[in-house]
Amino acid sequence: MTTIRDLFTKAGEIYPPIIQSLLNDSYGVKYTFDEIEDFKKSAPLDRNLIYWSEILYRAHWAATTNLVRHDRWFNGCIQHSLNSPNYIMFCSALRGLLESVTDTYHSLAAIPLTLAESCDYIDPALQRKVTEKLGTSEELENALIHFQFAKKHNKKSTAPLSHHALQATKYIIEMDEPSLQLQNLYTELCQVVHPAYESTSWLIKSESNRYWIQPPHDIAFIRDICERYSTAIERLQINSANISIFIYKTINEFQLPTLHNKAANEINMSTSPLQSKIDTAFKSRRGINLKD
Rank of each mutant, 00 (worst) to 15 (best):
H106A: 01
A11P: 03
L274G: 00
A196C: 11
D103L: 15
A93K: 12
R72E: 14
Q191I: 00
R128T: 09
A143C: 09
A43L: 14
A168Q: 05
N268L: 06
T32W: 07
S240A: 10
H106Y: 15
C226M: 06
Y171S: 06
I4L: 13
P44R: 14
R286W: 01
Y105S: 05
E139Y: 09
L203T: 13
Y229P: 00
L115D: 03
H217L: 10
D292A: 14
A93Y: 11
A109H: 13
S270N: 13
P17R: 06
E54I: 05
Q255M: 10
S179Q: 09
S137K: 08
T169Y: 04
E207F: 07
S137D: 07
K283E: 01
N239I: 12
Y229V: 00
A165K: 13
N261I: 04
T200V: 15
C226H: 03
L236F: 11
A150N: 09
Y248H: 11
H153E: 11
N184K: 09
F254Q: 01
E227G: 13
A220V: 10
L182N: 02
T158W: 05
K41C: 03
T271A: 05
S244V: 01
S157L: 07
I219N: 04
T271M: 02
A159H: 07
I88A: 11
V101C: 06
L180C: 02
N184L: 07
D292T: 15
I122H: 05
E132L: 09
